[in-house]
């Protein structure tokens, strides 16, 4: 579904990603892990069209999408739940969630999907008219995931969902995400918490200071000695 080849990305002159190759097949759950500053968010921003690559290619179902504006990439089916949630703080929960459906014209389906995300996150239903900035961290993350789902993307990129949240809430949200995955959405999960990500994923890539150093089956990677030592602290 998504194929990234020889991708190089930087901010101005400073290169951050080197020669990235990554492939996502339909209905797969892929984890992208790596420590602080490795370049995970940079890669997601590039896929979504917020950053332009220096060179390399990103293909969605065979079509080159690097260089396209963000709205076209979303329209083609790649959505993102960005790191830090990035809700519209002054807008209500409902307005935030509906912003996810901004490009959609299929009003009836949008209504159904809205009901569906509320069933995934019942707490959101109780807070629809509350301003998003006043939610707790966990609720904000639920709202952000709900907004991301409303675009009904083929491929959803989720960046550091667990950051700063209590484990029970993280589990809760990932439970909702797994329900979406069963509905045939392909997902790329970015996490600093390697174990958490590997548990969710079919396959995984390890990003180390801008290079992909390890990739493979997620369950096998849990036993990989390098990963154990560097990321799992065993």
């Amino acid at each position: 579904m998504l194929k990234i080849e020889n991708l190089n990305v930087g901010y101005g002159e400073v290169q951050v990603l080197w020669d990235i190759n990554l492939e996502i097949n339909k209905s797969e759950v892929i984890a992208l892990v790596g420590s602080n500053g490795a370049g995970k968010s940079t890669l997601l921003y590039t896929i979504s069209g917020l950053l332009q690559p220096m060179s390399g290619s990103i293909k969605l179902d065979g079509r080159e999408i690097s260089g396209l504006p963000a709205d076209e990439i979303l329209h083609l089916g790649i959505g993102q739940v960005p790191q830090g949630r990035r809700l519209f703080a002054g807008m209500t929960v409902k307005e935030n969630i509906m912003m996810g459906a901004y490009l959609r014209k299929d009003t009836e389906r949008v209504k159904e999907d809205f009901e569906f995300v509320l069933s995934l996150f019942p707490q959101m239903g109780e807070r629809l008219n509350q301003v998003a900035g006043s939610l707790s961290g966990g609720e904000q993350q639920m709202c952000a995931v709900a907004r991301g789902l409303m675009a009904n993307p083929k491929l959803l990129l989720i960046d550091e969902l667990s950051l700063g949240l209590a484990p029970i809430i993280v589990e809760n949200i990932y439970e909702a995400v797994s329900q979406v995955i069963q509905r045939d959405m392909t997902v790329l999960i970015v996490e600093q918490d390697v174990l958490l990500a590997l548990e969710q994923a079919d396959r995984a890539y390890v990003l180390d200071v801008g290079h992909i150093t390890i990739s493979g089956d997620a369950k096998e990677l849990m036993d990989n000695p390098t990963i154990k030592e560097a990321y799992l602290g065993v």
Partner: peptide, 10 residues
Amino acid sequence: MDIDAAKLQG
């Protein structure tokens, strides 16, 4: 409120 987040919504 957040220009990049707005871009991500299309």
